[in-house]
């Protein structure tokens, strides 16, 4: 029982990074990033490649994952989404563009890294024992980094100038533009940051669970669940949704077969959203 709670916390902390990335991109650009899961997988594979093929230290792999994903985010905003938002008459087209990007990333990952499931040994070996609960040191390490990044991100959003600009854009794009904020530049920043966060999560979780090229859609769907449960476009909601999913998943997997767990999660979520469509923290919309 205690073991399951600890697992849920570790899982929830990393899920929070994924959900925050998705919710940030959604809030800033009004784009539902279908490629989010594939970005996560890419982050995982880069870390795997750096560690297992090039035999570099973990820090290098982690930084490489984040840097590459930030670049992918910046490039896709600049080359794809900015134009699509401008030329299209309907908002759905950015969603399909993101789905196209997801397919593209997935086939590129498949070409470069192959279709095999790739795992790696834990970063730190050893096990801590706290109050009779066993915590592998590798997982504790991942938890610590995820927690630090989460605190760093929230601090950035709350107390810095760019963070304030991003929050303002999320509230009202046009009024923010009137105040002299460069919407395009901050849109790119938001996209890069969101992609970087999910790359970070991919890099960290790849050391616990293995990655494979087909994982992307499942991760995207998990990210959607978290964002919907918490409330789309709300930072606190993304974190809440992530921990709720982390707990549900860990407890479900501990006591039930995997497919039943997710079916129940889906069913529960649909019923929950019927009664509270804006999620836990979200604001009601018209």
């Amino acid at each position: 029982m205690e073991q399951v709670i600890v697992n849920s916390l570790i899982l929830g902390m990393n899920y929070a990074l994924i959900a925050l990335g998705l919710t940030l991109i959604f809030a800033i650009m009004n784009v539902l990033n279908f490629a989010h899961g594939q970005m996560y997988v890419l982050g995982g594979f880069i870390t795997y490649y750096a560690l297992q093929v090039l035999h570099l230290p973990f820090v290098v792999g982690l930084v490489a994952s984040v840097v590459v994903l930030v670049l992918v985010g910046l490039l896709s905003e600049r080359l794809l989404f900015r134009r699509a938002i401008r030329v299209s008459t309907r908002e759905e087209s950015t969603m399909l563009l993101a789905a196209g990007l997801a397919l593209l990333l997935e086939s590129l990952i498949l070409l470069f890294f192959g279709e095999k499931q790739r795992g790696m040994p834990p970063i730190i070996s050893g096990v801590y024992q706290v109050f009779g609960v066993y915590i592998p040191a590798g997982r504790a390490f991942v938890f610590a980094i995820a927690l630090a990044s989460l605190i760093g991100f929230v601090t950035f959003m709350q107390f810095t100038r760019p963070g304030r600009a991003l929050r303002a854009i999320a509230q009202d794009k046009e009024v923010t533009a009137l105040q002299g904020v460069n919407i395009n530049r901050y849109g790119a920043l938001g996209f890069g940051l969101g992609a970087g966060l999910t790359g970070l999560a991919g890099s960290l979780l790849a050391t616990i669970f293995a990655v494979n090229s087909g994982l992307g859609t499942a991760v995207s769907i998990k990210a959607f669940i978290m964002v919907m449960l918490g409330g789309a476009g709300v930072v606190s909601g993304a974190i809440a949704g992530a921990f709720v999913l982390g707990f549900l998943e860990s407890f479900g997997y501990a006591y039930m077969p995997g497919s039943v767990t997710y079916m129940l999660i889906f069913a529960g979520m649909i019923i929950f959203l019927v009664f509270r469509p804006q999620g836990i923290m979200g604001k009601p919309w018209g």
Partner: peptide, 9 residues
């Protein structure tokens, strides 16, 4: 996927 992206663009 490249075709799909081009169509949307």
């Amino acid at each position: 996927s490249l075709l799909m992206i081009s169509i949307m663009l």
